[in-house]
Computed example of a mutant assay.
Amino acid sequence: MQWIADQDKIRTLAGHNGLMEIFSSGAISGMELRRYSDGEAICSVGDRLEHMFILVEGRLKIHTLLPNGKSLLVRFARPMSVIGDVELLRQYPVKNEVVSMGESLLLAAGRALVLKEFEENTALLRFLVGELSHKMYTLGQTTALNLLYPLENRFASYLLSLFADSGGQRVEEIRTSTLAETADLLGTSYRHLNRIVRRFVEEGIVERKKGSLSVLDQNKLVQLANGNLYE
């Protein structure tokens, strides 16, 4: 993780993401800008947070750790997602792993700064209520997806979530070498997921080439996902 001491960049990113309408100018000036590299953790299970994070560039993967040591995907986060709001304000330990996918930029607001803003900033309160509502909705959606839907539907939802972020380009995250990790995140075995990948290739939904997958038929994925995304 790298701290970026650049107030102009902080203000530019805040303005681009609409944060100037949510936080006071003093609060924006008091935030830190942090850069995380691919695979780097923003927070881990058991951490006690001293900052609330706002994703302003890049994307994050949020997954939970199961008692058997495996992981289960919760959702992907895009810019303006808030990390650590509940944990910071209620001083709860972190329950999920949050990892950067590619390079990500996050603004970090300390607990004292956030509490001070709460005293008279109704825009911030409305923003966080909306964020909490979204988290509750998506948590219910992904829980049902992980528990009730067949793997082909879950994998289609996973691919669509990545596809939306990559602008339809090659989905680099799905490589032969990382299919085992993807299988863990989807709550299945590598062998079962590999069968689904082969079937998707045979049906012309994806192309497997040079160790990575490309989406060929987005409409078919949309049908299989049935409106469910990990986001």
Rank of each mutant, 00 (worst) to 15 (best):
G26Y: 04
R191T: 10
R199Y: 09
L221S: 00
V94C: 05
V171H: 06
G84M: 03
G110P: 07
M80C: 14
V98G: 03
I28Y: 04
G168M: 07
F127C: 02
E50M: 10
Y230K: 06
E173H: 12
K209N: 15
S29N: 12
E87Y: 07
I196T: 13
V197S: 00
A225Y: 00
N17W: 04
L125Y: 05
R48S: 15
Y158D: 06
F23V: 05
G46S: 04
L55K: 01
F118C: 05
T188E: 08
E181D: 12
H134G: 06
Q218W: 11
L151Y: 00
T142G: 01
A225Q: 04
M31A: 12
I22Y: 03
H192E: 14
I83A: 10
P67V: 13
R35Y: 08
V86Q: 10
L221N: 02
L147Q: 14
P79H: 04
A156R: 01
A180L: 02
T12A: 15
P67R: 10
S104Y: 04
E207P: 04
S44R: 15
R175L: 09
E119V: 09
Q218D: 05
A144S: 12
W3T: 15
E202A: 14
S100R: 03
E40S: 09
A14S: 13
V98S: 01
D184G: 06
I22K: 02
H16Q: 15
A41S: 13
Y230V: 09
V129W: 11
R170Y: 11
G46A: 04
N228E: 07
L151W: 03
N68S: 09
E50P: 06
K61N: 12
G69W: 06
T188A: 11
R48P: 12
G39I: 02
R90G: 10
G167C: 03
E87Q: 08
K220D: 05
G187W: 06
A112C: 07
R170V: 14
E120Y: 09
E32V: 05
V129P: 06
M80A: 11
G30R: 12
S189P: 01
I4H: 02
L113P: 04
N153W: 02
N228L: 12
P93A: 03
A109D: 02
V222K: 13
K70F: 11
L107Y: 02
A27S: 08
T143D: 11
Y36H: 08
R59K: 14
R111W: 01
Q91A: 10
S71V: 14
A41M: 12
E50W: 06
V197H: 00
N17K: 11
N153P: 06
G26V: 07
G39E: 00
V74K: 13
I205S: 01
S189F: 01
S177V: 11
E119P: 00
S133M: 14
S71W: 10
S177P: 00
S29M: 08
L224E: 03
L33F: 03
L65H: 10
L193M: 02
V171S: 04
E21L: 08
E152T: 07
L19W: 01
L49D: 06
Q169R: 15
S81A: 15
R35T: 13
A109Q: 00
